[in-house]
């Protein structure tokens, strides 16, 4: 059994730390252009995300309370930590719990402002976590059942067939929660993608200027990490599989944009129902069958 040397894993984590904001920013730019084209608009430049961040950073720092910045900083830290753990090939369970921790910090940051809309956003964020958490757990378990390990680095070297072959149900279930995680319609309950809708940007209502820039940055890190998870489904011990797993995650992202543009925003009860049904039926059934036939 060959394994990836520690140095290589650390380098992968470092590359994530440096490159993720650029990839995430480009991803958001492409997202905006493609969404605009789907709506019959021209859309901004694909570098718009970076322009936004630069402008936000140059603005006056204005926050509701100091503790809010600390919480948001923790959110950013834990997101980077999560991604770094993932790309360094650590334990998937650990990675998902770290992600949860990060999101709790975000919810707390919003709730600490006492603004009604931010509080409501925080509440909905917690609800969303409730909705997607079972599926993330099943994803980790699914990988374990399929490959016999929780460590993402070992999965990379051990499996001959990509995980998607044995985990199609888990993959589709994961796509369901990916909609929530990427904050796309129909499940962008806690932020309402545009600031003129029901919760007025909800969780991010009370962040502005450089503080908001931090939040955007964290989302970029988060999105890159999530795309990493998607590619995990397609990777095997052939090094070239990295290429087509990246291609697969790009396609998944395009599908997300399509879903975003063809759906109205649902309410939380509907979200909970749909994601849990997907989790139970697709995720659990898939793992169950895998158990029997293994």
């Amino acid at each position: 059994m060959k394994s990836i040397p520690l140095e290589a894993r650390l380098i992968a984590a470092a590359i994530y730390f440096i490159a993720a904001p650029f990839i995430g920013g480009l991803l958001s730019g492409v997202d905006r252009v493609i969404s605009a084209r789907m709506q019959g608009r021209k859309g901004p430049s694909i570098f718009q995300g970076f322009y936004d961040i630069v402008k936000l950073l140059s603005k006056q720092r204005n926050c509701v309370n100091k503790i809010q910045v600390m919480y948001l900083g923790s959110f950013l830290f834990f997101i980077i930590f999560t991604g770094a753990l993932f790309f360094a090939g650590c334990d998937l369970l650990m990675i998902f719990f770290s992600l949860t921790t990060a999101n709790i910090f975000l919810a707390v940051a919003a709730a600490s402002t006492n603004s009604p809309y931010a509080t409501m956003g925080a509440q909905r964020e917690l609800l969303q976590m409730l909705a997607y958490e079972p599926m993330t757990l099943l994803t980790a378990v699914g990988f374990y059942v399929a490959t016999g390990t929780f460590k993402s680095a070992e999965m990379l070297t051990q499996i001959d067939l990509p995980a998607i072959v044995s985990l199609p149900g888990v993959f589709v279930g994961f796509l369901f929660i990916l909609v929530i995680k990427l904050r796309k319609h129909p499940y962008d309950l806690s932020t309402s993608h545009h600031a003129h809708q029901e919760v007025v940007k909800g969780i991010s209502t009370e962040f502005s200027g450089p503080v908001y820039a931090l939040m955007e940055l964290s989302h970029w890190y988060e999105n890159v990490f999530l795309m990493g998870i998607v590619s995990m489904f397609f990777i095997n011990n052939n090094p070239w599989s990295i290429l087509w797993s990246i291609a697969a995650s790009v396609i998944v992202y395009l599908v997300m944009i399509l879903v975003d543009n063809t759906n109205a925003r649902m309410k939380w009860d509907n979200m909970l129902k749909n994601t849990w049904i997907a989790t139970m039926v697709l995720g659990a059934l898939n793992i169950f069958i895998l158990h029997i036939f293994k």
Partner: peptide, 16 residues
């Protein structure tokens, strides 16, 4: 209405 329930593509087309 489309904008209020977060269906941007529909909103743009209606106004077009």
């Amino acid at each position: 209405l489309a904008d209020a329930f977060g269906f941007d593509a529909l909103f743009m087309q209606c106004w077009r």
